[in-house]
Amino acid sequence: MTFTVIIMVFIMGGVVWWTVRQTIGTTPWTAEESTLEINDIGFVSSQDGIRTHSMKIGLGVFLAVATSVFALFVSAYLIRMELSDWRPLAEPTLLWANTALLVLSSICLQWGVISGRRNEFESMARGLLGGGVFAIAFLVGQLMAWDELAAAGMYLNTNPANTFFYLLTAIHGLHLLGGVYVWGTTMIRTRSPADNERVKLSVELCAAYWHFLLVIWLVLFALLSST
């Protein structure tokens, strides 16, 4: 559980640090002056980038939840690994190719984000398309890796190491599948130019989610292959 506790310390540390900033860090005497001029105007548009979009905060909170889920699985893995019946699994080499696909997927989406910020919407759509296609290829690759293991007689309940392999890849894959669903709805939206701003936001959210899942995958892959 040490692993999870460390992750939790970081997350809760973030919450406490944020609260400190909100309380001790506030300087109402300066805020008062700065609001003096705009007080009469009242509303300042969110388009000016003053406030982060709620969807982004929402995604951030969800990523914290997902981090907790994966941290706990890793903790369970580390505890279970210590027990005597653990026989390490020879991971299929296909996983290296899959990892490359997921990296490409992330790169494409990042490209989409950069294009979007420059308002090059066609390029953004291409980046989005590439990101999704590579992600689907990754998922197919993971299924093939499962197939390869099963063909070698390595079933889910042959050994706890196998069980964890299937479980962790499945949970990671399901998270990515959820992302692919959002990707699909965004792809449909790219057809109408009127939705460009909305698509831009979706691409940014997808990219952040994809990068997160890439980091999670790298951690899981390192864990699975080093033990």
Partner: peptide, 21 residues
């Protein structure tokens, strides 16, 4: 709640698929 989520999934696997978490 993720901790309960994780333990429920693992117990379900133990119960239904015969794994040994």
């Amino acid at each position: 709640f993720p901790a309960l989520f994780v333990s429920c999934i693992m117990m379900l696997l133990d119960l239904v698929l015969g794994t040994s978490f």
